[in-house]
Design a binder for these strands. Sequence first.
RNA 1: GGACCUGUGGUGCAGCUCGGAGUGCACGCCGCCCUGUCAAGGCGGAGGUCGCGGGUUCAAAUCCCGUCAGGUCCGCCA
Length: 580
Amino acid sequence: MPREYESTSLRDLLCGSISEAHVGQRLNVCGWVAKRREHGEHLAFLDIRDRSGVVQAVVEGSVDVKSEYVVRVTGTVTPRPEGTVNVKLSTGAVELSDCEVEVLSLAEVPPFQLDDRVEIDEQVRLRYRYLDIRRDEMQSNLRLRARVNTALRRAMDAQGFCEVETPLLWAPTPEGAREFVVPSRLNPGEFYVLPQSPQIAKQLLMVGGFDRYYQIARCLRDEDLRADRQFEFTQLDIEASFVSQDDVMGFVSEAVLDAAEVATGVRPGEIERMTWAHALDHYGTDKPDLRFAMTLQDLSSAFAATDVKAFSAPTVKALRVEGGASFSRSRLDELTEQAKGLGAKGLAWFRVTADGLDSPLARYLSGEETAAIAGVDGAANGDLILVVADEYELACHVLGAIRVTLGSPPVGEGPYRYVWVTEFPMFEGVDEDGHLQAAHHPFTMPHPEDLGLIETEPLKVRSQAYDLVLNGWELGSGSVRIHRADIQSRIFRALGISDDVAEVRFGFLLGAFRYGAPPHAGFAFGIDRLVAIFAGEDNIREVIAFPKTQSGADLMTGAPKSITERQLRDLRVRIDPKGK
RNA sequence: GGACCUGUGGUGCAGCUCGGAGUGCACGCCGCCCUGUCAAGGCGGAGGUCGCGGGUUCAAAUCCCGUCAGGUCCGCCA
């Protein structure tokens, strides 16, 4: 049945809503001519398309319309004659007969066909994005995204969160991701930046007493683009006061599970948890794809006293590839290249056969070593065992990447496997100045048990940071924030940020914290990625109306473009033609 | 900054390995025919600087070099 909002001054209901319930009614529909099938001058069929679907209009006599003309059709809803029902069409049991067709707008021949019969080059799609998004697939992706947004807002509202908007013109904070810069006309030589995220703003909202904040926030980062990364992307951004990590994970779970239910029709059960150390050890990554097993096996003890040079390393990790014994030599070489590209010295392979291990390295192995490899993960004849020996983290990362290459199903396949990854390390490695680097951000609260290690064994300090991962995609991350000045200065000191520098960069935040900062924690996750997975798309451009290309261009508008001399003069900005 | 893949009428492909006339297929478009089609059908037709530039060659869509655009990835994304 037509809903209230379908009816307008020009139309009575949407094309896709027409059904046998309307038989006998004379109705108006508006839409685009999707297809025209003419039978001489006596009979023509028009498929009229709007956002809801397609309905067939029958015109007695010829009709002067072409593909993509915008028309208003007045016709009588009639059951189709016997034998002409189209089961492939939701409206296929009926048609509009005795039609009058009013052309509302002419259309040139479109640059590509809008049916989904062939895949169109993305370059062409992006140049004519306004036509591309007329297609079913883009319509349903963007509408799915709208439903997800609605579900998220509803879930946050139901949990007592208050939506607050934060500025897009923000202050430069030379940390982390490269920022987009906006020159100030009123203050020549000075600049705003577009926020990488509302991180500091939302912490200030906590100081301001908004104890449950959320926002569907646009974030901007001037970093290289990827299938899952655009300059601008959208996060559900959350922050709450007087909460623990578990509280925040609960809020986020509620929102994500509600969105999942709306998007997929099934509400997942509770989201499982895994520590960062466990994820790295078993999956070789901090964003494990749990849709398939193929976990990394540790053979370090079996090779502790090995004579084989290739395996004398702190860590020896192995991966069982079911049925992989049939891999060609060139396939194995490709995998080896991949491993080397990721920093491994090599990749050892062993085919498991009835006669034992088949490998160039097999004859050098001791009995114990052979048994260890042949027994990896319940290996059977026909399997392939891949082995990397190296420093612990490198061995994990390399095999983890190969695990994904060999095992990962396409985006749209398999179950949805959500997982919280917790207890991230506080610091990771050192920068070129020898200072520790924050794994999450410098306001992250260390794990309470590890506070004593900050000065002594910083790399062992766990943080109260947590990621949400879905099918191998990092959806988002969050943390408990530091609200105590003493801990904050210890962290700054560990990161090599002096009091003076901290004051310059984050002075307003630290200042705010001096006026009564509640304990607080938060999270943010990428809506583009979540919707892409729900839509079964392997890149987020498919769920964004007007995305950029990998080189940052908008093929439709031509952005980025030069601006006029006048604009440059107003901004007191001069282009250096020699610069590159 | 780097690696790899792609670029051929409006669209999607084949042709490239092993150089020999812009050759082919499907869709779309234009014209004619057709009263129950729905990937309508039949007949006919138009439409191309083979991304761009250079080189090799008697001859380049094809081989080589460079370049541009799009994609995937590494670096980057606190």
